[in-house]
Lab assay of single mutants.
Amino acid sequence: DELVREILGRCTCPDQFPMIKVSEGKYRVGDSSLLIFVRVLRSHVMVRVGGGWDTLEHYLDKHDPCRC
């Protein structure tokens, strides 16, 4: 939770990309009902993408309208 909030807090946009914790390891992202699975691996916040894992920073770079 703290690492996810820290990464989201780096955004300086007036309207921050919403990530709402639904349950342990599950977050709702953006304005959709899309759920992502998150885990911490060796101090990196990882997001389940397709059949693999990606860093939360890279995921936000691709999906946050402010960072695109």
Rank of each mutant, 00 (worst) to 15 (best):
G50F: 01
S33P: 13
V22I: 12
I7G: 03
F37C: 15
K62P: 02
E57L: 01
S32R: 11
S32N: 12
C66F: 01
P18N: 10
V45H: 04
M19P: 00
V38M: 05
E2S: 12
R5Y: 10
D64K: 00
G50H: 09
V45L: 08
F37S: 15
L8N: 03
S32C: 07
V49E: 15
S43E: 15
L41S: 13
T12P: 03
G50P: 12
K26P: 02
E24C: 05
S33I: 02
G30W: 00
S43M: 07
I7H: 06
T12I: 08
V45T: 04
G9F: 07
E2K: 13
E6D: 11
V49F: 08
S23R: 07
G9L: 06
D1N: 05
R28G: 01
V4R: 04
K26L: 10
P18E: 11
T55I: 02
S23F: 02
I20W: 13
G51L: 09
I7N: 03
Y59V: 05
R28H: 05
L60W: 01
S32I: 03
G52C: 11
R28F: 04
Q16P: 15
R5W: 11
Q16E: 07
E6A: 11
K26W: 15
I36S: 04
L34I: 14
C11A: 05
F17N: 00
Q16N: 04
C68R: 12
D31L: 11
R10S: 08
V40G: 07
Q16L: 07
S23V: 04
V47P: 01
V29W: 05
V4G: 00
D54Y: 15
H63F: 12
R67M: 01
L34V: 14
I20V: 12
D54E: 15
R10W: 03
M19W: 11
V22Y: 03
P65V: 01
V38A: 06
R39W: 04
D54L: 07
F37G: 14
R39Y: 08
D61G: 10
D1R: 05
Y27Q: 01
S43K: 14
D1G: 05
E24A: 11
V40I: 10
R10P: 02
R48T: 05
R5Q: 14
R67K: 05
R28V: 10
I20R: 13
G9E: 13
L60G: 01
D1W: 05
R10H: 13
H44N: 07
L35Y: 12
E57V: 03
S23P: 01
L60M: 05
V40H: 08
T12W: 02
L56Q: 00
E24P: 09
D15Q: 13
G25Q: 11
D31W: 10
H63G: 03
I36T: 08
M19R: 06
R39G: 09
C66I: 03
T55K: 06
K21A: 03
D31M: 10
K26T: 15
L56F: 08
V29Y: 06
L34E: 15
V22A: 08
I7W: 03
L3Y: 09
S33T: 10
P65N: 06
P65C: 02
S33Q: 14
I7A: 11
H63W: 09
K21Y: 06
R39I: 08
I7P: 00
L8G: 02
Q16G: 11
C13D: 03
S33W: 04
V45D: 01
G52A: 14
V4C: 03
F17Y: 14
H44E: 15
L56P: 02
P18K: 13
S43F: 10
G25F: 07
I36G: 04
R39P: 03
E57Q: 09
G30Q: 05
H58P: 01
H58T: 09
L35N: 14
R10V: 03
G52M: 14
R10L: 06
R10G: 06
M19L: 13
V38C: 12
V38Q: 02
H44K: 13
D31E: 13
G51S: 14
V29L: 12
P14S: 10
P14T: 11
S43W: 06
K26Q: 15
P65R: 05
H58R: 11
H58E: 11
V22E: 10
H58V: 04
S23N: 06
L41C: 11
R42N: 15
V47E: 00
L56I: 06
E2V: 06
R48E: 10
P65M: 00
R67Q: 01
L41M: 14
C66L: 01
S33K: 13
K21N: 02
S32Q: 12
R39V: 09
S43R: 13
H44D: 13
I20T: 13
F37A: 14
P18R: 13
Y59S: 05
C66S: 05
D64N: 02
P65D: 03
G51Y: 08
C13A: 00
K21W: 07
R28C: 10
D15A: 13
V22G: 01
V45A: 11
C11Q: 00
R28Y: 07
S32V: 05
I7D: 04
V40F: 07
G30V: 04
S32D: 14
K21D: 02
M46L: 12
S43C: 13
G50K: 12
I7V: 09
P18V: 07
P18F: 04
S43V: 05
K62T: 12
V45S: 01
K62A: 12
S32P: 11
D54V: 15
L41Y: 14
R5G: 10
C68Y: 14
Y59H: 00
L8D: 04
V40Q: 08
D31C: 10
C66P: 03
G25D: 12
I36C: 15
V4F: 07
P14D: 12
R42Y: 10
M19D: 00
